[in-house]
Design a protein around this nucleic acid. Structure first.
Lengths: 157, 157
DNA sequence: GTGCTGGCTATAGAAACACAGAGCCAGACA
DNA sequence: TGTCTGGCTCTGTGTTTCTATAGCCAGCAC
């Protein structure tokens, strides 16, 4: 059985955040460089030197972040070969990495709204050219506001 | 006029990420403690000592993060008074703070899926008790996958 | 072979962030 | 008046993440 609470959690002191998913996620993508590297992967960046130039970190830092992101499973090292060049590697988002994009999109949308006095520098659109948005949806597909949400803590094992 | 590109961006080298909303957002909520503080606000935590205990940082760090989050506009200092106590302050999410919750929810959902071998420790549900999910929606309200997205860079000023 | 180049590693130092402990201050209560 | 308490600040230390610079290595070009 589960302990169910209203949102916000009524009895906060009876429950401590344990093995929180947000906390675990931040251990993987919690640094600025890691987050911006995933942003670039979202934009379509694939190659080492592109990542270095566009995220504006040193190659040492980018090598470290890319290695971590590959180890964590968000990116995959895929060999490629340009004519006259030796084999090198691209960094391609995995399913796990692709599934992270909504977080980036949510962050972008929130930043566009509150931190961009002169408007969004990049727009994300669908096939029709209409603006895209990140939303919270309930079981029937309906849009939800934060006030509509409740939290449940499953029974501990 | 706008420069429109397929997703992923075709001509990455012709466009540099400038005043990126994600980057700006990370300047405000880019640290682990700030993110977990907003998580707690989402859970319903309001008072200083609760934040300190539940985020598990020192009071010094929490005081600094709360001050920054108030200055940035995500939280608001609201006076309250318990019987027999002097006036103190609660930290209550503003509209800007509430609008940030989908990002936290997206992070939680992603972490639940990929970083929790034994299942999600907390579930977010709607009024019917159905699981809630963060989705990307297009102009007609349809669900979108990352492959369906395109990016547009408005003309520079 | 030699030279060159791109991805990657290594080291040292700077900056940001967190911890631990001490101390300050307003105000409720004796 | 004096004491106690909770929110908050200050100081010093350690860890992490970053920058800057140098160097390594595979392999293509010559």
């Amino acid at each position: 059985m589960a302990m169910t609470m209203d949102s916000p959690l009524e009895d906060l002191d009876s429950w401590q955040p344990f093995s929180c998913s947000i906390s675990r996620a931040l251990e993987v993508v919690g640094t600025r460089a890691a987050m911006l590297t995933m942003r670039e992967a979202f934009y379509g960046t694939r190659r080492f030197d592109q990542f270095v130039r566009r995220v504006k970190v040193t190659d040492a830092v980018m090598a470290a972040r890319l290695r971590e992101l590959v180890e964590s499973g968000l990116l995959e090292r895929v060999p490629y070969r340009d004519p006259g060049q030796r084999t090198r590697y691209e960094y391609v988002p995995t399913q796990m990495g692709t599934d992270f994009f909504p977080v980036l999109l949510g962050l972008m949308q929130w930043g566009d709204r509150y931190l961009q006095p002169t408007g969004a520098p990049v727009a994300v659109i669908d096939a029709d050219g209409a603006a895209v948005s990140v939303e919270v949806r309930g079981g029937r597909g309906q849009s939800l506001e934060p006030d509509d949400l409740r939290l449940t803590v499953p029974a501990r094992k």
